[in-house]
Design a protein around this nucleic acid. Sequence first.
DNA 1: GTGAAAGCGCTAACAA
DNA 2: TTGTTAGCGCTTTCAC
Lengths: 344, 344
Amino acid sequence: MAMTIVTIAEALGLSKSTVSRALSGKGRIGEATKRRVYDYIESHEPESELLKSPKAKRKTYNIGVAIPTFSDAIHLPFFQRCLLGACDFAQSVEYNVLVVGIDNDKIQPLERLIKDKKVDGIILTRALVDDRGIRFLKKKDIPYIVVGSVEDKDVYQIDSDNRSGSKELTSYLYMVGMKKVGLIGGHRNHQVTLDRYEGFLDGVKAAGKQVDDTIIYLDALTDIAIHQGVKQMIRKGADCIVCMDDYICSRVLKELREVEETQVAVATLYDTGDEVFDGTSVFSLRYDPNELGLEAAKLLFNLINNKPVNKRTKLGYEVILRKSNKKSRKEDNDEEKVPTWRRL
Amino acid sequence: MAMTIVTIAEALGLSKSTVSRALSGKGRIGEATKRRVYDYIESHEPESELLKSPKAKRKTYNIGVAIPTFSDAIHLPFFQRCLLGACDFAQSVEYNVLVVGIDNDKIQPLERLIKDKKVDGIILTRALVDDRGIRFLKKKDIPYIVVGSVEDKDVYQIDSDNRSGSKELTSYLYMVGMKKVGLIGGHRNHQVTLDRYEGFLDGVKAAGKQVDDTIIYLDALTDIAIHQGVKQMIRKGADCIVCMDDYICSRVLKELREVEETQVAVATLYDTGDEVFDGTSVFSLRYDPNELGLEAAKLLFNLINNKPVNKRTKLGYEVILRKSNKKSRKEDNDEEKVPTWRRL
DNA sequence: GTGAAAGCGCTAACAA
DNA sequence: TTGTTAGCGCTTTCAC
């Protein structure tokens, strides 16, 4: 038979209301008494529901992960991997993960998750410049973590160090002899686009070059736009094209192959290690989306459980020259990080 | 203020104990009295917790979706899209989706989901030949749907019509003049692999050809294996290579490009429309993973709510000749389904 | 079948 | 800080 508040009161020589207060935390209650009550329950029936405070009872042991539903997102394994990383951590602390698909103009699924009190906290896997999801969560009394970078200092956030990475790779490109570097990127409404853009400019300056020597082409949202961007860069004499992500990179490679242009080098500022390059030699910044999701879940877990959490977390990256597969197969696919580079 | 058992008793001129019995069903209670009580609540506060039987109270309005965590799965946007399809339907009926990442040798996350009673039902997004997830669920008293095909007739399942599709595409390849067709596929432990294999053989027979005229290479689990498979097929004089999925297809195209082999046609038995082919002309069976996830969620919803559900559901496909992008861009990316085909 | 009354497990108000 | 007491919402027992 399960313990009740009365059996405890009798066993400890207290009144049932004192025990009630000890457990609920409400009202005035002595620290020593509280200890006695908790110790008694823990030693006699550690599984007891009584140990769970009314607040704890309302805990769901679920976290919510919001992933974008539309367009470019579907091409990138980033979100899937981020989600699985979060699942991985959640599993380790016996939490579960609820997913919702949202877009900036459609956040109802997120709203419903909060309204129905289905989760103890939320992870947003993408940050937009003016993000309705973040605006909504700020108003609610629920912990949340944003994967990505936002200006707002009040928002707990975790991100790959896009700016530093982009700077490092860009200046590296000049080091190995590039003369005219082009940058092609996506939506300016995505914070990452801006971060990588800034990092790119940092790199150009660090290499002692002029921004005038570069060709910048943003808002390349469609394949047509990428096609035009590449055409423009070739016309203007770029010897290297820096792509902001895997997807753009795969399209750029395709464009170059189609026009049989083999004298232009390619780099990507976001390489998740999913082989979308068909083995072509590409400079890249290698990030791990799984880790991002896992760390985000860890931060959220700490936030939920009132442990100290930094407002901003940055994860690292690797600078990689991916060798052509023909070569790397012979050498058992190991990666080479020395600053040599061969034309395609 | 929420209705209580007492307010109802007063309103209906009954004692609170009678109302209690009417709602709990326990003890002796008149059918007419029961009706009166239920009718009163339904008309005054249909949302009331009192209407929910102890069993109904345990409903979570969550469904669980299990996606694979490892290896090949990460390359395929299939599972992400399937998941989003399920989210989409869930949202429309005010359910939520819990994700777990599982593998055949690691189904703890799934077990925990059931043990903790976090969900009213489960969708498995992949069927293995001897699937521990399915074996586990069969023992539990919880509705579940398998996306994929399983032999077991007791299992509710939904799948793309892999066999018919594979048959149709294969026989079509012979129709347009292929002489020696190779098949390259993944793990024999995956039911889809077997289905496509059978469909391929059906197609060969339907075209009046001998299986001896084909080259079959299964268990191509690694890039190295694919490399060897392709090499072997070229050596044996294949004029067309049929790939079992998008990923294998992209690797095969890469291999062919590397050896500058332009006389071998390529087809894929699973094309999700995510552009992994770099615009190369490929025969394909086009499926929609979002729809699969959405329909699976719909079936599960019906199962949970005791509506009639077919044990087996098959979704359709399109047979497509994807044109080279160079050409399709000019023609605004429309797809061509006439039986013409150009060598790369 | 129904109702009165007692009881259970908890919270809340208030006195000390 | 603790105990007393009242009360809430519900179930169960028992008499009719």
